[in-house]
C-alpha cells in the first residue's frame, strides 16, 4: 500500500522533473544567442526531459511487460539526443561558426 503510493510519488516526480527540463530547454532554444548554446539547451529537452517523462510513465503504469517499450524508447532518446546535438555542434564548428562571447553582442 505504502509502496504503491511511494511508487506513484516517484513516477509523478519524474514526469514533473521531465516537463521542467522540457520547458527550460525550450526557453533556452528560443532565447540563447548562438547555435552551440541552443544545441546545449535542445539536447537537455531530449535526454533529461523526454527520458525522465518516459521513465515516469513506465513507473506510473507499474512496470508491466508493455512498459518495456517505454523503457526502450527512453534508452533510444537518451542515446540519440546527445548524438544529434554532437553532430549539429560539430557541423557548425566545421562550417566555421564562431561561438558567442560576451564581447560581441550582435546577432550570432
Amino acid at each position: 500500500m505504502i509502496g504503491g503510493v511511494l511508487l506513484e510519488i516517484v513516477a509523478v516526480g519524474l514526469v514533473v522533473v521531465g516537463v521542467a527540463f522540457l520547458l527550460a530547454g525550450t526557453i533556452g532554444l528560443v532565447r540563447f544567442p548562438d547555435v552551440y548554446t541552443r544545441a546545449h539547451a535542445a539536447s537537455k529537452c531530449d535526454s533529461a526531459g523526454a527520458g525522465s517523462v518516459l521513465l515516469g510513465l513506465a513507473l506510473h503504469d507499474g512496470f508491466a511487460f508493455g512498459d518495456l517499450k517505454l523503457v526502450l524508447l527512453a534508452i533510444l532518446v537518451v542515446v540519440s539526443g546527445p548524438t544529434t546535438a554532437h553532430a549539429l555542434a560539430r557541423a557548425a564548428m566545421r562550417s566555421g561558426r564562431r561561438a558567442w562571447t560576451r564581447d560581441e553582442r550582435g546577432p550570432a
Partner: peptide
C-alpha cells in the same frame, strides 16, 4: 572532406 564523427559512427552502428 569531413571525416565522420566517431560518436555518430558508433551510435549508428549500435542502433
Amino acid at each position: 572532406a569531413v571525416p565522420v564523427s566517431p560518436v555518430v559512427f558508433l551510435v549508428v552502428r549500435l542502433l
